[in-house]
Design a protein around this nucleic acid. Structure first.
Lengths: 170, 170
DNA sequence: ACAATCATGTAAGCAGTTACATGATTTT
DNA sequence: AAAATCATGTAACTGCTTACATGATTGT
């Protein structure tokens, strides 16, 4: 696959396709506000990325008219839509398990004493429930439903594999 | 956090802690055999990583006696166990949602025509079921239970959010 | 006036990637 | 004899990271 999009590139293109013309700054903010640390939305990631997409002619930039400040507004091109669709429908990557920091740790968690383990799982469960509430309350968050469902699955998982079960009742 | 372990470093240390002294080559093989593309297990990743862990004195290397071939066998040190425990019990990272290539795509999947969408979801569901069988059948895979449960959740997720439901019956 | 936010980038560094390279040993 | 596997690395590259830097505009 030549010039296959990274996941960040794909996600950025998808946001532009969904919301229309956007500035790099707004994109950075949107990704930074994501509940996942995976999407840092740092300028050091976004600005070079937009320059890349522009060079590959997957987006076009023009001076922003709506905002008072000078800014470059990017829109997706036809080539961009094509590349986006290829990325979205990439079964090889979509079917992959990806990376789940909790899943990875659960595999090896028996290596730490039971007391620490229980406290750890309780705290993770607490934070997950908290995150679930935060996401459910946030009207702006587009991916609300999916995120909530994912978090509910993690909670079910924690219930099944330990958390309070492993720490107190056995 | 100074010198905080990366997830690959943590996972490598955990494998050594769990299985005892191992060579870089064996580690690379173990990670390469993982069902997730995230763990490539490429030598370009493992060998420099082991050199790093050795420099930081989290592992010690000695010539392998058991194997016929000359090889360096690495064991975890006391400092290594301490760092491993810190990594394992890192709630900030464990509570993060991480990266799920399917979740990311589902958020934007409405951007592609319904026909492609349905085919895509069916294929992902098929591969997930396949992967589930493969993992369940593999006696050697240590993380079998966790992986299977995770995959079952993904399947439930796919049932809920489309797959066959969205493609045929509506 | 001062702080916050908008907006755009650069610089150095790091942990990965793919591809290449070498040579010994074991299996067929 | 040839192929596969064991075993260890290096080289070039890429996409991110953190930190820094600049300046305009807006809100208090």
């Amino acid at each position: 696959m030549l010039g296959m999009l990274t996941d960040l590139e794909g996600a950025v293109l998808a946001v532009i396709a969904r919301d229309g013309a956007t500035t790099s700054y707004k994109l950075a903010r949107e990704f930074a506000s994501s509940p996942s640390q995976f999407w840092s939305g740092s300028s050091g990631a976004i600005y070079p990325l937009m320059a890349r997409l522009r060079r590959r002619e997957l987006v076009v930039g023009k001076p922003d008219a709506t905002g008072r400040r000078k800014a470059t507004s990017f829109s997706i091109t036809i080539q961009g839509r094509r590349e986006l669709e290829t990325w979205l429908l990439d079964v090889d990557r979509a079917a992959d398990m990806g990376f789940d920091p909790l899943r990875t740790r659960l595999i090896f968690l028996h290596l730490v004493p039971a007391a620490e383990r229980a406290g750890f799982l309780d705290e993770v469960a607490r934070r997950t429930a908290e995150l679930s509430l935060r996401i459910a309350a946030d009207e702006d968050l587009k991916a609300r439903e999916h995120s909530v469902s994912w978090l509910n699955m993690r909670l079910a998982w924690l219930r099944k594999f330990g958390a309070s079960a492993g720490s107190r009742s056995g």
